[in-house]
């Protein structure tokens, strides 16, 4: 099935903007809570875990939506290198939005912590307890978060470049306005 509308499907657009807000919030919540000793640390951590798991669930739905509704093609006149960068960065974003919550969940499991999403809701461990695994996964959670932030910056810059400078309908296809409209 080919996309001829020049637009991302509505479910894809809704998921994109919802998850953009959630993931960006998670990055700020994450770095904010580990740099604080105040009550902020406690309440940010309480938001961090359930919001992260919600991102994992939505990411799975989003991949299904992407397979069901293929995105509009990139402009034909886009240089090959930029096309390649666009595709690579999109798949990197998908990989990270799935890897980040899984690593967070696995690192708490490896550290022997109960993975509590609320006062009473507990997820089962997905990794055997091991201090070595905990340390590696905990560092991985930080490094992948930095990679996610950098990828997001590049993604946002590229979107603005398409929207403000090239004006080629790429940004419009996700905002929901038809090309040229």
């Amino acid at each position: 099935m080919k996309n001829t509308t020049g637009l991302f499907a509505l479910p894809a657009r809704i998921l994109h903007w919802l998850m953009a807000a959630m993931i960006l919030a998670m990055l700020f919540i994450g770095v904010g809570m580990v740099a604080s000793v105040s009550e902020r640390h406690a309440w940010l951590l309480r938001i961090h875990k359930p919001l992260g798991i919600a991102i994992l669930l939505l990411a799975v739905v989003r991949l299904a939506v992407r397979l069901r509704y293929p995105p509009p093609p990139l402009p034909a006149d886009l240089p090959v290198l930029q096309k390649l960068a666009a595709h690579a960065s999109h798949w990197l974003l998908y990989a990270l939005m799935i890897a980040m919550p899984l690593v967070g969940w696995a690192m708490l499991s490896a550290g022997g912590y109960p993975v509590m999403l609320s006062d009473a809701l507990r997820l089962p461990p997905i990794f055997p307890t091991s201090p070595t695994a905990f340390a590696i996964l905990r560092h991985l959670h930080s490094w992948l978060a930095m990679l996610l932030f950098l990828t997001f910056l590049a993604h946002m810059a590229a979107a603005l470049y398409h929207g403000l400078i090239r004006r080629d309908g790429v940004l419009a296809s996700m905002v929901g306005r038809r090309r040229g409209a």
Partner: peptide, 20 residues
């Protein structure tokens, strides 16, 4: 309490990293 939680986590990461 939040300060203890945050500091213990930092200490825990240092010592588990050293163990590893």
């Amino acid at each position: 309490l939040p300060a203890r939680s945050a500091a213990y986590a930092d200490s825990y990461l240092r010592r588990t990293s050293e163990e590893a």
